[in-house]
Every structure is written in C-alpha cells, then in structure tokens.
Design a protein around this nucleic acid. Structure first.
Length: 427
RNA sequence: GGAGAGAUGGCCGAGUGGUCGAAGGCGCUCCCCUGCUAAGGGAGUAUAGGCUCAAAAGGCUUAUCGAGGGUUCGAAUCCCUCUCUCUCCGCCA
C-alpha cells in the first residue's frame, strides 16, 4: 500500500511513475473521493467536538444537581445528522482503502523503464553452459528414462500440473532443500522457520496477494464461513511474523529462511510451460525473508540476491541475473532481481529465483514497525527472495548433469545429503 | 467436542456510566544529588488522522482500552455478535 500522504502531495508524480509499470491510476476518482472524505470528515469532527463538549457540561451540571435537559436537547437535535455523517465517513474511508489496496508499488528510481521481460537488463552472467557430446534431453525425458518422474500417476491422483517423484530422484529433491537450508542458516546467518501452510485473509492482504489476486490462490472453506488460503510462497507466513509488531531497532535486520510447499492455481497461464515440472500447482521452495531498517534495504537486497546466487555457485549451475524493468515487476515490489538458471533442455535461461525489496509497501499494510533512533515508531522495509525454488533446481541439476547413458551425476555439494551417492542411474 | 476464565499503553497492572488517553509500577529519555559502584530526588514518555500554518514550531480537533455492532446526552465500564488466549474434561498424530 502506498502512503496516502504521498498521493495527496504528489498525485501526478505518482501517477506518472505507476504509468511506467503499466498501471493507470484513476486520478479523478481519487481526487473526488479525497474531496468527499475531507468535507465529510471535517464536518463530522466538528459535530463530534460539539457533542463531547456538551456531554461534559451535562456531566458537570448533573454533578452540581442542576437541570441539564436543555443541554441534552441540543445534543439530541444533532444526533441524527452526526450518525448519518459518521456512516458516510466510514463508507468513504472504506472506499479509499479499497482503492489504495489495489494500487501497485512505485518502482525505485534505479529500476530501468521497460514494457516486458525482453526489456530486463542483464546484471551479470556466471558460469559457462556445458558442451554436451551427445543429444541433450530435457528433464521430462531424463526423469522418464530413470523411471523416477511420473506425471501419469500424479494426474491420476490429482490432475494436471502435479508431479510425483520416486526413489533417488525424490531423495535428491529432499537433499536440495536440506542443502539450501543448511547454507542459509550456517553461512548466511538466517534463522530457520517452520510456518503454517494455511493462512488467513489478513496475512494474504499484508503481503499483497489479496485483494487483487485471489484467483491465483487456492482456498479451503472454514466452518465459520471464512476461508484459509494455501500459501503461494513462504513469503506470506514468514513476512507476517512481524505484522502488528513493533521491533526494537537494534534487532534489525531480521533474517528468516523457510522451506515450504507453495500452492498456485496458475490461473491465466493455460498453455504455458505445460511440459514438465516448471509450472506446477504445488512445488517446494526455500524462501529468504529480511525485515530491515529503511536506510539499509537496498544494500541488503544486493546481499540477499547474493545469498540466492551462492546456492547456484555451489551447485556449479550456470546462471544470469537480470533486473526486472518497470513493466515486468510484481505488484508489491519496488525493485526485483530475477536469477535465471541455464536449462540445456530448453536452451535458455529460466527463472529460478526472484529477489525483491518491497520498501514499506507490505509493512504499511501489515503495520510492521520498529523503534528508530529517536524512539519513534517507523515502518520497516521488507525483502524476500527464493533461495531457491526446489523443483526448478532439480530440473536444472537433471539437465545440466545428465550423461549420455541416461544417468544424472549428483553435484558434489549434494553428495553428503545423498548418502555419498555419485550418480542416479536408470533402474 | 464439552465447561470455565480472560483480552487495557513498550511491558506489568488498576479502573463497572461523567472532567479517563486512562491510577500505580517497570522500562526508557533528560536533569539534579552523590568522588567509584549501589542508592536517592525531579521532569518527561502511546498511536493514527483531520483542520490551521508558505514550511517548521505551534494551535484547535477526532478516533483508538481484542474486532464489529448496539443502548445512552455521554461507554474501557452496560448489551449483542465474532476473533484470539489460557485452564480443566474428552478425543487425537
């Protein structure tokens, strides 16, 4: 959520910056609502002040044993009008809130302008794609050849966009997550979190998934008529740890790492990535979250992105990092780096991590604050990034470490997690 | 699933219809005293808004005692609904 003060003071400027990311801010509608709010609020508060004053006098009069009926009549006379105004004010403020909740974040000044993914500048490229002396297969064929990746069973059990792993490949999937958690906790100073996979609407609103993107989420009904939402990323439960909290300034930054399954309906992505495990309704991810002092959030975004990249370096997977341009950024982000891993089966770099600084956008929705140097409360900045998507890391390993005989070499860093196994071979 | 208790400021805790944004304590900040330490004395210390002001300072004002609704001239206090927490019983990985 943007600061309403910013909209009041620089509406045209905000509209212009939002236009860069393809969002049209309805300036007239905002101004009209603001004008109404101002008028009604002023009038309401005047009547409230009058009521409070008269009520006080009534109290004093009664204490002295005097007759207060005249004063009471005065309050009664304006009661209906006040009630009507309070109701209107309530309604206008709710509408203003609704409007604010669906306005995306303003891109940071360092974000390059652009319309789509094609305009994302590359920041760096690390590692060299391997030369294969044989015809490379994609992970679907490799998995089928191994007899350890079964989409038929998954579609029988659940439907499209699910997968089932077996044997050593399932273990490799588990090993990847364990490895990532160990690196981030042991070398990067993150605290491991285990969090709920079902969350309430307030949490989803806090991080920005609601109210605008409900169709992207899975939900389960509750007996009380409300619903639980399945988390689309650990960002949601983990960032909401600090919702409605005031954190001591010297505790910042908070650094959390959390491995969870992620559930996405993938509405509107029909036909995209239908082959393989690139785009699933359920996938695992190790997520990094930082809660920071506003003055350090951009510095820490670089650091966090580096933490995610470390995993790829340790796995010896070639990748590149791009800055998302204004037109390609997510709703809540002020700046995002995508890390893309090389997939020989697709002959392309594909997203495996997305690292963002949300500035105070989520913090304002969540009322997540800290006590600053002056002892005043101030909104924190929130950051997060995948460190990394587990399923896509598995894909990358299968494709980059494939051998001519259909086996897959286990990257050295993962062997301790695989009981010392060097390779996964067809059985 | 059944029965009961509770939710107040950064924290603890008082407050059952009137001048209560809220006693007291702790914590924190500043000052004083004391030749270290410890102790003592004083002052201050919630948040979010609105209007005003060129801006800042300031001034006026509203809301907030788990959430929402209601009663009342007036609600932390009374009524209703909901949420959450705790205790006991039952069930359970």
């Amino acid at each position: 959520m943007l600061d309403i003060q910013l909209l009041r003071s620089d509406l045209e400027g905000v509209a212009k910056r939002l236009a860069d990311r393809g969002f049209t801010l309805d300036v007239e509608a905002f101004q009209a609502l603001e004008f109404r709010r101002k008028t009604i609020q002023t009038e309401t508060q005047e009547l409230q002040a009058r009521r409070n004053q008269l009520s006080k006098q009534i109290g004093q009069a009664k204490a002295k044993g005097e007759d207060a009926t005249a004063l009471m009549a005065q309050v009664t006379a304006q009661a209906d009008q006040l009630k009507a105004l309070e109701r209107q004010l309530h309604e206008v403020q709710a509408r203003l809130d609704d409007m604010l909740l669906v306005i995306p974040n303003v891109p940071h000044a360092s974000v390059p302008a652009g319309k789509s993914a094609e305009d994302n500048p590359e920041v760096r490229r690390v590692g060299t794609p391997r030369q294969f002396g044989f015809a490379v297969k994609d992970h679907v064929d490799i998995g089928a050849g191994l007899g350890m990746l079964d989409f038929d069973a998954a579609s029988k059990i659940s439907g499209a966009r699910f997968m089932l792993l077996k044997g050593p490949l399932a273990r490799l999937h588990r090993a990847i997550a364990q490895f990532m958690l160990d690196i981030h906790t042991g070398e990067h100073g993150y605290t491991e979190i285990y969090a709920p996979y079902l969350v309430n609407a307030a949490s989803m609103t806090g991080t920005g998934q609601l109210p605008k993107f409900e169709e992207d989420l899975f939900a389960v009904p509750r007996s009380d008529g409300e619903k639980f939402y399945l988390i689309p990323t650990a960002e949601v439960p983990v960032t909401n740890i600090v919702r409605d909290e005031i954190i001591a300034g010297d505790k910042l930054p908070l650094k959390f790492v959390c491995h969870t399954p992620c559930f996405r309906s993938e509405a509107g992505s029909y036909g995209k990535d239908t082959r393989g495990m690139i785009r699933q309704h359920q996938f695992d991810k190790v997520e990094l979250v930082q809660i920071t002092h506003p003055s350090r959030s951009y510095e820490l975004l670089e650091e966090l992105t580096g933490h995610a990249e470390t995993i790829l370096k340790k796995l010896d997977l070639p990748y590149r990092t791009v800055t998302l341009c204004t037109g390609d950024m997510g709703f809540s982000a002020a700046k995002t780096y995508d890390i893309e891993v090389w997939l020989p089966g697709q002959n392309a770099y594909r997203e495996i991590s997305s690292c963002s600084n949300f500035e105070a956008f989520q913090a304002r929705r969540m009322q997540a604050r800290f006590r600053n140097e002056k002892g005043k409360t101030e909104l924190v900045h929130t950051l997060n990034g995948s460190g990394l998507a587990v399923g896509r890391t598995l894909v990358a390993i299968m494709e980059n470490y494939q051998n001519a005989d259909g086996s897959v070499t286990v990257p050295e860093a993962l062997r301790p997690y695989m009981g010392g196994t060097n390779a996964i071979a067809p059985r």
